[in-house]
Nucleic acid binder design. Structure first.
Ligand code: FES
Ligand code: FES
Lengths: 152, 152
DNA sequence: TCTTAAGTGGACGAGTTTAGTCCTATTTGC
DNA sequence: GCAAATAGGACTAAACTCGTCCACTTAAGA
C-alpha cells in the first residue's frame, strides 16, 4: 500500500549499521561492505543524511561518517524526511497546492489528519528500535503493537 | 513524506460523493460533474472500485454506480488497497522479496511493524469519517487525534 | 611539500511507474 | 433498433526514481 523509496530503506540500513557503535566513525566504503550495498549508493545516501544533519562527516584521509546524535534521539520520521521530502500523503495539503477542487471537497482535512497521525507514530519510533538494539529487541515479535486513532 | 497516488485520492473523493446519498445510484458522468474531475478519469476510478467490490454497478441505459456497503463499513485501508496494490512500506517484506541483504539486516522486521501499525490506523478510519458525515464532523479540528505505537 | 584517501556537489541517463485518454465490446431501457 | 451507460484493455506521454560517474575539495601522513 503505502510505499517508501529504496533510498530511505538504504538510509535505515546504513544508520542501523552506524548505530552499532555510535562513538566510532566509519568510512563510506566500510559501510558499503557491511551493508552489501554498492559504494556509490551508500555514498549518496550518506551525503543526504549529512545535509539533513543526521550524521556528521570528517573529510580527508581517515575521514568518515558518524551519528550526529545517540540512536535514541533519531526517529523514523526524521529519516523519512530526508529522502521522501516534505510531501504529504495527498497532494492537497499545505500551501501552494493546486488541487482545483478544494472548494467542494471536504475530504482533504480528513486525510491530513490521517497523515498527521501516521507522522506521530513514526516520531515514536527511534533508530535504536529500528536497529534492534533495544533491551527487548529479541522479543520483538511478542510485544503488542497498539495503535489507535481517535476522532479522525 | 509518505505518498499515495492521485488515483487513490480521486477514489476517495468519488466515494465521498457517493456516500452523501448511499441509497441512490449515480452515473459516472454525474459524478465527474460533481467532483470536477474529467469523465474518463472518474470512469477509470470507478471501474477499479467495482472490481475491488467497493461499489456496485448497473449497466445499460440509466445505469450507474452505488456504494456496495454503508459508508461506515468501508475503511480507508480498503480504499488504499485498490490502487496502491499489496505492496508494503519496504521492499523487503513478505514472500518472494529479493532483498539480498536480508541476512545481515535486522531492520526489516521493525519496518514491517511500523507498516502494520499504519495499516491498523487506516482500518480504523471509515469512509463516513472521510466524507465528513459523522456527527462530530464539523468540530473535526477540535478533536484530539491520538496515535501511539507501543513496543515497536 | 606531495601524495593519497577520503567526502562534496552536481549532472546524467536508463529504467520504471503513474496518469490520463481513447477505442471497442457489451448490456439494458425505451 | 437506437441510445445510454458500463467493462475492459491498449496506448502514450509525463514524471519520478535510482544508480552511476566525474571534477573538486579537504585533510592526514610520509
Ligand atoms: S482532493 Fe484536493 S482538497 Fe480534496
Ligand atoms: S533491507 Fe531488506 S531485509 Fe533489511
Amino acid at each position: 500500500m503505502l510505499r517508501i523509496g529504496k533510498l530511505t530503506d538504504y538510509a535505515t540500513v546504513v544508520l542501523a549499521s552506524l548505530a552499532e557503535e555510535p562513538a566510532r566513525h566509519r568510512a563510506a566504503a566500510e559501510l558499503a561492505d557491511r551493508t552489501r550495498l554498492s559504494h556509490p549508493t551508500v555514498s549518496k545516501v550518506l551525503k543526504g543524511l549529512q545535509r539533513a544533519g543526521l550524521v556528521v562527516s570528517s573529510r580527508g584521509a581517515h575521514g568518515g561518517y558518524g551519528l550526529a546524535r545517540p540512536p535514541e534521539q533519531i526517529t523514523a520520521a526524521q529519516i523519512l524526511d530526508v529522502f521522501e521530502g516534505p510531501i504529504a500523503i495527498t497532494e492537497c495539503s499545505g500551501a501552494g497546492s493546486q488541487c482545483g477542487i478544494e472548494r467542494q471537497c471536504r475530504v482533504g482535512g480528513a486525510w491530513q489528519r490521517v497523515n498527521a497521525a501516521i507522522r506521530r507514530a513514526l516520531e515514536d519510533v527511534t533508530l535504536r528500535q529500528l536497529a534492534g538494539l533495544d533491551s527487548g529487541a529479541l522479543r520483538i515479535a511478542d510485544l503488542a503493537s497498539e495503535i489507535r486513532v481517535h476522532g479522525i
